[in-house]
Design a protein around this nucleic acid. Structure first.
Lengths: 223, 223
DNA sequence: GAAAGCCATGTTGTATACCATTTGATGACG
DNA sequence: CGTCATCAAATGGTATACAACATGGCTTTC
């Protein structure tokens, strides 16, 4: 019916929508979030909204100030680059584990992802945009899930929940997308062949490429 | 002084108590948590309990099964050891950053912690037990906070929220505690002197010592 | 005229009430 | 005797109601 998303519960819907609003910058860093406003906006009551906000708070995306409201967390450039380093450490470790433990179904999912990515990158002009972001998320989520480690999965989710991950894509040109696809291909091949060391460095290479894109994103010394 | 804990809000109280119940094994892995039961147990309504559970869920400590209840997550030995490795990666990175950015107040807190730890470890017999766990938490939290990176802080919190971290202490003997104190001393000295590389490896050394304790904790091939 | 206190208003924090879904028991039917 | 349908109790999911706290403007007083 609606968006084919897994919007089975109001809480899930609230979480996804609010998260997206923050990702896309419609809710700006530092901005105060009023529970009743959000509820009205999403057609929900405060209860699921608050639960979603608690979750986002636990992920470091928003901040509860007791009795004084909820605010979108700000992230400065230094923090962000650190996060990329952490992400590289976590995800490369995931890739190593995945190379050891992944099953054929997960492999199939990765292949399907890569296939669609290739199609997107093959386009002459248009920016793949949000679709590519989703594919990228699915690809990485599949690898993390293949580790079978739920705690690790939770950690990575928290890292990739950053607004900036997608903003990194925003300024990608066609060449950047092609490179991204190629890197995903390498990662898949490494995992498929069970080469743990290769999978690890292929993933690290991929993440740090994204990091570099963010570094160059805004050269100005904006406060 | 009562429990000087920051139990200002019901949500916070619920979170701390439930977390502790899981840490101490009073709520066993796989066990179903009934919201009304927990609320009655803590003298609270379901609302703050549910918010606390959402937070714990986000941390990977419990698991929501839609319409079917909340369960304490189980962790097998392999996952656990992985978590220690991740923790080592994250915390050693924190130590490196802290060595660069820490302020004098935080240094003072660390010194105070170390002081109390030394007292505990100096005891002839008694197991320091929960008190030492708290000191350890404070020590590590202070270092993480000193990085100034909130997202990183959130990540580490999620790692150390593991039941097993404290269970590692449980089988510590006097010699183990003395070694732990000595290691904390090294970490502090490294950070204080601003030696990033030293701080990093001192922390890694410390965490992996704990990992080793867990490895040896239960030699039996218990499922 | 300025500062301090008080009240009105809005928002968060918590409790309760209601609805939807699951689950186990009971009984009818094969 | 076993199996399946049906229903009731329990529990999770959500909405609403109420209480506590914060904030801004107004009045009052010096």
């Amino acid at each position: 019916m609606t968006a084919t998303e897994d919007t089975s519960t109001a809480h899930q819907k609230a979480y996804e929508r609010i998260h997206e609003l923050i990702l896309t910058g419609k809710l700006a860093p530092g901005e105060r979030l009023r529970e009743r406003n959000l509820g009205a906006l999403l057609g929900l009551s405060r209860t699921p909204v608050r639960e979603a906000l608690r979750r986002l708070s636990s992920e470091g995306t928003v901040r509860f100030e007791p009795n004084r409201g909820v605010y979108v967390e700000e992230i400065d450039r230094g923090e962000l680059l650190e996060i990329f380093d952490i992400g590289a450490a976590l995800e490369s470790r995931c890739a190593r584990l995945a190379a050891r433990k992944i099953g054929s179904e997960a492999i199939a999912v990765l292949e399907a992802c890569l296939d669609e990515m290739t199609k997107f990158a093959g386009r002459p002009e248009g920016d793949p945009g949000p679709d590519y972001v989703k594919l990228d998320k699915r690809f990485h989520s599949t690898i993390v899930a293949a580790t079978g480690n739920r705690k690790l999965q939770a950690l990575v989710e928290h890292v990739v929940s950053l607004p900036v991950l997608s903003s990194a894509f925003r300024q990608y040109g066609p060449a950047d997308f092609r490179r991204s696809v190629r890197q995903h291909g390498e990662i898949l091949e490494a995992i498929r062949s069970g080469d743990e060391a290769w999978a690890e460095v292929a993933m690290r290479n991929h993440i740090l490429t994204g990091r570099n894109a963010v570094v160059k994103q805004d050269g100005t010394a904006a406060g």
